[in-house]
Amino acid sequence: MKKVYCIGELLIDFVAEKQGSDLSKANEFTKKAGGAPANVACAISKLGGNGVFIGCVGKDPFGKFLLETLKREGVDISLAQLSDTFTTLAFVSIAEDGERDFVFSRGADKELKYNPALRKNLSGNILHLGAATALLGGPLEKTYAKYLFDGLTKEMFICFDPNFRSDLWKDDEETFVKKCMPFVEKSHLCKFSLEEAQLLSGKEDLNEACDKLHKVGTKIIAVTLGKDGTLLSMNGTKKTIPSVPVSPIDTTGAGDAFIGCLLYQISDLGSFDPVLEDFELLEKMVAKANKAGAITTTNYGAIVALPTKEQLEK
């Protein structure tokens, strides 16, 4: 089974549960481990795969808590880094339908430095670039670009999830789109939300959005549509793969569970060629990944809600 290197932020989610979607009215918060790339690494490891996390946390109690959480879930944290900068925090409120509102206090995640010694271990493995904070500047953004280059030169399977957060971009969406394009161009697989697909393509119609993003360069597009399933697009074929019905209480981490489950399945293939050529095979994988995402919405928090292999197969 191939390794999946997940690069980006690991942070604390302070979650205001059952207090509505307006953070200004929240009084009580629960500490949870979070961060999209870390969630994906955990999703892979909880299913029995080889999830590797590459990111930076602070030398503080929160950083210690986060690394211990990943280690407990079976994630390889040997490449994680520590910084004197305080660990990144996110404050999250959750409405009754499970939708969220975010406010970030950015810290140590931006300090991640490139590790050239890692190059020798990358060949033939999977690279997941799914950080919400990676394109905001600092050493992390430069590191991100260098690992993309490594992924290309080492013939890795490259996955990109832009994880757009409006709070982080503050009326600068044009810059976000511009910075995403090299990753859309070079990745084999891109996972988007409906909002992201429309934003990056400039198209309201989802079919037109996929066509435009394929022209940029990516071969496979998966657009997650919540309870409506996932639109899968590859080699001129498009199909919406239905999800499974659940009663969501927290959508945090659902997209990460989806892409983690999909990458776990890809990592178990002997070659990447089938997933790039066989739409029916990919369709089956997406259906299973939809199930992982749905299960995750039935509990609070991302990592604790990610399904195990046994839960997924029930």
Rank of each mutant, 00 (worst) to 15 (best):
A134E: 01
P116E: 12
G301E: 03
G107H: 00
E17Y: 11
L10E: 01
R100A: 11
I295F: 09
A257L: 11
A257S: 15
A197M: 03
L122Q: 08
G253H: 04
M234L: 12
F272P: 02
I44H: 02
Y300L: 15
N27R: 15
I7E: 00
F164H: 10
L129G: 02
K31F: 07
T251M: 13
E185V: 06
L70E: 02
K3S: 13
I12Q: 01
D161G: 11
F29C: 13
T153V: 12
L10T: 06
D101R: 14
H128D: 02
D76C: 05
G260C: 13
P162Y: 00
V75G: 00
R165P: 08
K120M: 12
N50V: 07
S267A: 15
C180F: 02
P61A: 07
A43H: 00
L135Y: 04
W169D: 05
K178R: 14
V275I: 14
G74C: 04
N290L: 10
C42G: 07
A197S: 04
K142G: 13
G20L: 12
L129N: 01
S187P: 03
K238I: 08
A131M: 02
A257I: 10
Y147T: 04
R106K: 09
M1L: 13
N299D: 14
P248G: 11
R72E: 15
T237F: 07
Y144R: 06
K238W: 03
A132G: 11
T252I: 14
C159R: 01
V216K: 12
I54F: 06
F164I: 05
K227F: 04
L276A: 12
S105E: 14
I249M: 15
L199V: 05
